[in-house]
Simulated scan of single mutants.
Amino acid sequence: MPHTIVVYHSGYGHTQRLAQAVAEGAGAQSIAIDADGNLPEGGWEALQAAQAIIFGAPTYMGGPSWQFKKFADASSKPWFSQSWKDKLFAGFTCSASVNGDKQVTLDYFFHLAMQHGGLWVGLGHLPSNTKAATRNDANWIGTFSGAAAQAPADASAGEMFAGDLENGRILGQRVAQLAARLGA
């Protein structure tokens, strides 16, 4: 299976839990961006060796966390050398509000991937938008450009909705399947 990295920042554990679901679906390695916006030792080398990179961050104030933005700015070195060109990319986010401007965060990830010359992978899963649908159904929020999750501000990471975690697994599986199909 192609080598995939899930690189993410999590402020309160919700995005980390979603990252775990994405990594499970993709059979991927996870790299957490720390509270200061830095990667652990060997993180940049692992991203360089990856064939697919999946970005993740909470949506705060209409975009990704500043820690993720610091990582994105630091990715100018691989950008300059075009060393991430033609890798597969995808993304996921979580916020307390149902909308919470999650699409802006997913768009940020998309544009970062495009800056790197990458190929974007969307969720590829129909929304659960019938009267019978619940928050425990996959893609109940109805996003297409990545996986989106909603965790109430007073809920722990352990209380995340099953449908949101399934979104993460679906996204991870899709990235892994496309990477294998493309020989990435």
Results as ranks from 00 to 15, higher is better:
residue 174 R to G: 08
residue 50 A to W: 10
residue 162 A to C: 01
residue 91 G to A: 09
residue 52 A to Y: 15
residue 139 N to F: 02
residue 31 I to G: 01
residue 79 W to P: 00
residue 27 G to Y: 05
residue 82 Q to V: 15
residue 137 D to V: 00
residue 119 L to N: 07
residue 89 F to A: 12
residue 77 K to Q: 14
residue 143 T to N: 08
residue 78 P to I: 12
residue 46 A to R: 12
residue 175 V to L: 10
residue 64 P to G: 04
residue 155 A to N: 04
residue 129 N to W: 00
residue 4 T to F: 10
residue 144 F to E: 05
residue 162 A to P: 01
residue 16 Q to I: 03
residue 177 Q to S: 09
residue 160 M to T: 02
residue 50 A to F: 12
residue 76 S to E: 11
residue 42 G to E: 01
residue 7 V to E: 09
residue 158 G to D: 15
residue 32 A to G: 01
residue 22 V to P: 03
residue 122 G to R: 07
residue 117 G to Q: 11
residue 119 L to V: 14
residue 67 Q to W: 15
residue 6 V to I: 04
residue 155 A to P: 07
residue 175 V to S: 03
residue 55 F to Q: 02
residue 108 Y to D: 05
residue 40 P to T: 09
residue 57 A to G: 13
residue 111 H to D: 09
residue 10 S to A: 10
residue 171 L to N: 03
residue 119 L to W: 13
residue 90 A to P: 11
residue 94 C to N: 13
residue 58 P to H: 05
residue 28 A to D: 08
residue 11 G to L: 10
residue 157 A to F: 05
residue 150 Q to I: 01
residue 107 D to K: 08
residue 170 I to M: 15
residue 150 Q to W: 02
residue 65 S to T: 12
residue 75 S to G: 04
residue 166 E to S: 00
residue 176 A to P: 10
residue 120 W to F: 13
residue 131 K to Y: 07
residue 88 L to Q: 09
residue 176 A to F: 11
residue 108 Y to A: 06
residue 70 K to E: 03
residue 73 D to C: 12
residue 59 T to G: 11
residue 129 N to A: 00
residue 62 G to E: 04
residue 10 S to W: 08
residue 137 D to S: 00
residue 181 R to F: 13
residue 176 A to R: 09
residue 20 Q to V: 07
residue 148 A to Y: 00
residue 38 N to L: 08
residue 177 Q to H: 11
residue 63 G to Y: 13
residue 113 A to P: 02
residue 95 S to H: 09
residue 90 A to Q: 10
residue 44 W to R: 00
residue 155 A to R: 02
residue 65 S to L: 15
residue 64 P to S: 08
residue 154 D to V: 09
residue 38 N to M: 13
residue 53 I to V: 14
residue 133 A to L: 02
residue 94 C to E: 10
residue 161 F to G: 00
residue 82 Q to P: 02
residue 148 A to V: 06
residue 51 Q to T: 14
residue 68 F to M: 09
residue 49 A to T: 12
residue 99 N to C: 04
residue 58 P to C: 06
residue 173 Q to D: 04
residue 37 G to V: 08
residue 165 L to A: 04
residue 153 A to E: 11
residue 74 A to D: 15
residue 51 Q to E: 15
residue 93 T to Y: 06
residue 69 K to T: 05
residue 72 A to W: 07
residue 115 Q to T: 10
residue 173 Q to I: 07
residue 15 T to K: 09
residue 27 G to D: 12
residue 53 I to C: 07
residue 132 A to H: 01
residue 115 Q to V: 11
residue 148 A to F: 03
residue 83 S to D: 15
residue 19 A to Q: 07
residue 89 F to K: 06
residue 84 W to S: 11
residue 8 Y to P: 04
residue 174 R to W: 13
residue 32 A to K: 01
residue 10 S to P: 01
residue 3 H to P: 03
residue 48 Q to C: 02
residue 172 G to T: 08
residue 62 G to I: 02
residue 45 E to Q: 14
residue 72 A to H: 08
residue 149 A to S: 09
residue 86 D to F: 15
residue 100 G to I: 06
residue 143 T to D: 06
residue 92 F to A: 05
residue 111 H to K: 06
residue 170 I to T: 13
residue 63 G to N: 10
residue 121 V to K: 00
residue 22 V to T: 07
residue 35 A to P: 05
residue 139 N to K: 02
residue 24 E to Y: 13
residue 105 T to R: 11
residue 31 I to W: 06
residue 163 G to P: 01
residue 84 W to T: 07
residue 125 H to Y: 15
residue 140 W to L: 00
residue 114 M to R: 11
residue 66 W to K: 12
residue 106 L to R: 00
residue 156 S to N: 07
residue 41 E to V: 14
residue 72 A to G: 02
